[in-house]
């Protein structure tokens, strides 16, 4: 039981690291909380569903499509909203409210097109593709889709790591995260670099949506709010404003959820919220983070 919960928790945790990644990246660069974050996860899920039933695309093929679509979308969205917000009196609060509006719009549009229904793709899709349905680790058997998702998440983390630490763009992004004003003065095209980071954040969220069917089950239009709160829990557990700290937050969260499900399953729902309140009151910058409060 325990080893199942721990190993399963780690795989779960990798996935939740991806769930929180985009929110943390955008927070790190813009100091804004994208309250529509969960809705972009939902959009990723709906795109996957749509492409599967229309063209029979496997979710693995949807991954690159989703990345491109949402990268561009996020890039454009940045220019529509963010520069104006940054010039306002209280960017943090106003952006919070604005993205809440965005989340409502996304949810409404999805309901208009797809109805207010639960959707899913067959969970056996990877089993068919690879011709195995389960795999065994230390005597515990897990569905093969968990392995696929875990590998995809690790690849995503490595790519984000490379973007951050081995590209000029990543260098500029980190400079903006450290000090937006100084980055501007030193000649970095702050808006363009931020817009790309914003796009990457949205694309990462959509990726979590593509994978979501295999980890958290069916998707539905109003799933966004809960996912945003969970993501927030994860990034607070990790390190606020440090995207790679999200992975640690996700792992802690995944293992905690699995342990709860194994031993106190009926209270699992409350856990993320209590965890969030607890951590935010004790160490609002995140368990592993440096002080970024009151920015």
């Amino acid at each position: 039981m325990l080893s199942y919960a721990l190993i399963g928790g780690i795989m779960y945790g990798l996935y939740f690291g991806l769930v929180g990644m985009g929110l943390n990246l955008i927070f790190g660069v813009m100091r804004m909380i994208n309250l529509a974050h969960g809705d972009f996860i939902m959009l990723g899920a709906f795109l996957t569903y749509w492409l599967y039933y229309l063209f029979g695309f496997n979710p693995l093929i949807v991954i690159p499509i989703s990345i491109v679509v949402f990268l561009v979308f996020g890039f454009l969205m940045y220019y529509v909203f963010v520069p104006k917000l940054l010039h306002s009196k209280d960017p943090e609060m106003l952006s919070f409210i604005l993205f809440f509006g965005v989340s409502q719009v996304i949810e409404a549009i999805i309901i208009l097109f797809f109805g207010n229904n639960q959707i899913s793709v067959p969970s056996t899709i990877f089993a068919k593709l690879f011709n195995v349905s389960t795999f065994t680790l230390f005597g515990n058997t897990f569905p093969i889709s968990w392995l696929v998702v875990s590998v995809a998440c690790i690849v995503a983390f490595v790519l984000i790591y490379v973007y951050f630490f081995y590209t000029k763009l990543g260098y500029a992004t980190r400079a903006i995260m450290a000090n937006r004003h100084e980055a501007l003065v030193s000649g970095i095209d702050v808006n363009k670099v931020s817009a790309i980071a914003f796009g990457v954040g949205i694309a990462a969220a959509s990726l979590a949506g593509v994978m979501g069917f295999f980890m958290i089950g069916a998707a539905f239009p109003s799933m966004g709010t809960d996912l945003t709160t969970i993501s927030f829990t994860i990034i607070v557990l990790g390190a606020l404003g440090n995207p790679l700290g999200t992975v640690i937050g996700g792992l802690i969260y995944g293992v905690a959820i699995m342990l709860m499900q194994t031993y106190f399953s009926s209270w699992t729902n409350v856990l993320p919220y209590l965890l969030l309140i607890f951590v935010i009151l004790i160490k609002p910058e995140g368990l592993l983070g440096k002080a970024v409060r009151n920015v």
């Binding site: 909203f81 409210i97 604005l98 809440f100 509006g101 965005v102 989340s103 409502q104 719009v105 996304i106 949810e107 409404a108 549009i109 309901i111 208009l112």
Partner: peptide, 9 residues
């Protein structure tokens, strides 16, 4: 929902 979302924005 759509119209109040737009309104908020």
């Amino acid at each position: 929902q759509l119209s109040y979302g737009l309104l908020i924005i």
